[in-house]
Amino acid sequence: MSKNNPNSLQNKTWLKVFDSFLTTLKAIVFLIFGTLLYGIFGHHFDFNFKKNDVAQKSTRTYNSTAIEEDWDKVENGIHLQTGLVHDASFDIVRANCTACHSGKLIAQNRATREGWLQMIRWMQETQGLWELGVNEPKILDYLAEHYAPEETGRRANIDMAAVEWYILEMEED
């Protein structure tokens, strides 16, 4: 159709450029507005969380009492609610990866950058994950840095740090 009407094609291209410019502009406005909001209200959150510093949460066993208090808190570099490492790319990872599944699924897995890329492609092909665009390399860097595989050989030692030693009470023979 565009063959006969080069004008309309040009118009469309121009519209597309304008559209993407508008999208970028919207993104920048959102970013600024969000930062502003955080600047205004952020300290309220901090204040509330400090009161609840006593709340402890084990990463392995579930503590049902502490969840609400842990809302959005970072402790020892870990964002407690998602269980994910908190760094500059955290917000991007959270926004794109925890829409469908829990952050716990990420935190328990280990893979190389290539391995994480394969997982993303699998989710895009079969699970409805959207295109990650400019965020993809950032997400991959984040995952490859914080959730890289360790060499454990054909079988790892029993995890001594995880063993809770106790006296087994038995009747004397």
Binding site: T35, I67, D91, A95, N96, T98, A99, W130, G133
Partner: peptide, 29 residues
């Protein structure tokens, strides 16, 4: 996007009925 302080890039591609839980309001008890 406002709540996150950042835009959800490609947010327009979200399928209908999907609510991103970037703020993870679903933590179970």
């Amino acid at each position: 996007s406002l709540a996150l302080g950042m835009p959800i890039v490609f947010g327009k591609n979200l399928p209908d009925g999907v609510t991103p839980i970037g703020l993870d309001s679903e933590t179970i008890q």
